[in-house]
Amino acid sequence: MNDTTPSAAQAQQDIADEFAFFSDWSERYQYLIDLGRKLPDFPDALKREEFKVHGCQSQVWLVPEGDARCMRFRAISDSAIVSGLIALVLRVYSGRGAQEILDTEPTYIEAIGLAKHLSPTRSNGLVAMLKTLKGYAAEALADAA
Rank of each mutant, 00 (worst) to 15 (best):
residue 34 D to L: 07
residue 6 P to I: 07
residue 8 A to Q: 08
residue 27 E to V: 00
residue 54 H to S: 13
residue 37 R to D: 14
residue 25 W to M: 11
residue 13 Q to N: 09
residue 8 A to S: 15
residue 51 F to D: 02
residue 31 Y to H: 15
residue 35 L to V: 03
residue 39 L to F: 03
residue 18 E to Q: 10
residue 51 F to K: 01
residue 15 I to N: 01
residue 12 Q to K: 06
residue 38 K to A: 15
residue 41 D to S: 07
residue 12 Q to L: 05
residue 17 D to M: 08
residue 42 F to W: 01
residue 18 E to C: 06
residue 49 E to H: 07
residue 31 Y to N: 08
residue 14 D to K: 04
residue 25 W to F: 10
residue 45 A to H: 05
residue 7 S to I: 06
residue 23 S to Y: 04
residue 25 W to V: 02
residue 12 Q to I: 02
residue 5 T to G: 00
residue 33 I to M: 06
residue 29 Y to M: 08
residue 41 D to Y: 01
residue 50 E to W: 04
residue 30 Q to T: 12
residue 46 L to R: 06
residue 52 K to E: 14
residue 38 K to V: 04
residue 17 D to P: 01
residue 39 L to I: 01
residue 36 G to L: 05
residue 16 A to P: 00
residue 9 A to I: 05
residue 35 L to P: 03
residue 16 A to E: 06
residue 26 S to L: 12
residue 8 A to T: 11
residue 51 F to Q: 04
residue 8 A to Y: 10
residue 35 L to H: 00
residue 27 E to K: 06
residue 31 Y to V: 04
residue 48 R to V: 14
residue 27 E to S: 14
residue 54 H to D: 13
residue 27 E to W: 00
residue 26 S to C: 10
residue 44 D to E: 15
residue 39 L to H: 01
residue 43 P to R: 08
residue 30 Q to A: 15
residue 40 P to E: 05
residue 6 P to L: 02
residue 49 E to K: 09
residue 32 L to M: 10
residue 17 D to V: 07
residue 19 F to K: 09
residue 36 G to V: 08
residue 33 I to H: 06
residue 37 R to K: 11
residue 20 A to N: 12
residue 22 F to Q: 05
residue 39 L to E: 03
residue 8 A to W: 03
residue 31 Y to L: 10
residue 39 L to S: 07
residue 10 Q to D: 14
residue 29 Y to K: 09
residue 45 A to C: 04
residue 12 Q to Y: 05
residue 32 L to C: 10
residue 21 F to E: 14
residue 54 H to L: 12
residue 43 P to E: 13
residue 9 A to L: 09
residue 18 E to T: 12
residue 26 S to H: 13
residue 28 R to E: 12
residue 36 G to Q: 05
residue 47 K to F: 00
residue 47 K to T: 11
residue 31 Y to P: 01
residue 39 L to M: 04
residue 9 A to E: 15
residue 24 D to L: 09
residue 23 S to W: 01
residue 34 D to A: 14
residue 19 F to I: 08
residue 39 L to Q: 05
residue 12 Q to S: 02
residue 12 Q to E: 03
residue 35 L to A: 11
residue 44 D to A: 15
residue 13 Q to D: 12
residue 34 D to E: 14
residue 19 F to C: 06
residue 19 F to H: 07
residue 12 Q to W: 11
residue 50 E to I: 09
residue 8 A to M: 10
residue 26 S to G: 10
residue 6 P to R: 00
residue 30 Q to E: 14
residue 11 A to F: 01
residue 26 S to D: 15
residue 5 T to W: 02
residue 41 D to Q: 11
residue 28 R to F: 03
residue 53 V to Q: 02
residue 46 L to M: 10
residue 21 F to M: 11
residue 39 L to V: 07
residue 16 A to K: 14
residue 53 V to L: 04
residue 35 L to R: 10
residue 29 Y to C: 10
residue 9 A to Y: 08
residue 24 D to G: 13
residue 20 A to M: 09
residue 47 K to Q: 11
residue 33 I to S: 07
residue 48 R to K: 10
residue 7 S to N: 03
residue 10 Q to S: 09
residue 44 D to G: 11
residue 15 I to F: 03
residue 7 S to G: 06
residue 47 K to S: 10
residue 44 D to R: 05
residue 51 F to P: 00
residue 54 H to Y: 13
residue 11 A to S: 12
residue 10 Q to G: 02
residue 50 E to G: 00
residue 24 D to W: 04
residue 51 F to E: 02
residue 13 Q to P: 00
residue 13 Q to K: 11
residue 43 P to T: 04
residue 35 L to K: 04
residue 6 P to D: 06
residue 40 P to Y: 03
residue 52 K to S: 09
residue 28 R to C: 05
